[in-house]
């Protein structure tokens, strides 16, 4: 069936089984591959996107649940990659393989919208759903503080 939603500011219609996870609709049907598959079970955060401003795990969210909603992926966060979180990520060379970082950045952006000056404990609580197998956690903490300063 046709499912209508707004993806990165653009109204689109996806011909999909309503049970298809939003992740695969974004990747295979809409053709945006910045959102990653990591576990398929809401365990790792690689698939995190924003829906109506909230972080959601697109790998377990049926695409039908996104009908009529505003979905933002890493590609839609900014035009040029100049969100303070993205800038801080580059300044501190956070990424190693980079694969999980779309999801990390989407989580971090949502955290800073909710808690503009987060403590380490706030960061740990908000970011522990995002696994990084390369182990960039200590740089992510620093980068979030850096972005928070930039945003303030």
């Amino acid at each position: 069936m046709a499912i209508e939603l707004t993806l990165n500011g653009e109204a689109i219609s996806l011909e999909a089984d309503p049970d298809m996870p939003l992740l695969w609709a974004i990747r295979d049907l809409a053709g945006l591959t910045g959102t990653k598959y990591g576990c398929g079970k809401a365990l790792c955060g690689a698939c995190n996107v924003h829906m109506d401003g909230q972080v959601v795990r697109s790998c377990v969210l049926p695409v039908s649940a996104a009908a009529g909603r505003q979905v933002t992926t890493i590609e839609g966060l900014t035009e040029d990659g100049d969100h303070p979180v993205q800038v801080a990520w580059r300044k501190l060379n956070v990424a190693q393989c980079g694969y999980c970082q779309s999801g990390q950045i989407m989580s971090a952006v949502a955290l800073l919208e909710r808690v503009p000056q987060p403590s380490d404990a706030d960061i740990d609580a908000a970011m522990s759903g995002n696994i990084c197998r390369c182990g960039t956690y200590t740089r992510i903490r620093k980068a979030i503080h850096e972005a928070a300063e930039d945003l303030s």
Partner: peptide, 29 residues
């Protein structure tokens, strides 16, 4: 020297392409 990661922009904008991201016309999964 601590040169910045060459793929930094791609890594932070979702443009980095991995094996799983390859798409070809007429492709099956």
């Amino acid at each position: 020297k601590p040169m910045d990661t060459i793929d930094g922009l791609a890594f932070t904008t979702g443009k980095a392409s991995y094996g799983i991201d390859t798409v070809l016309p007429d492709m099956l999964y």
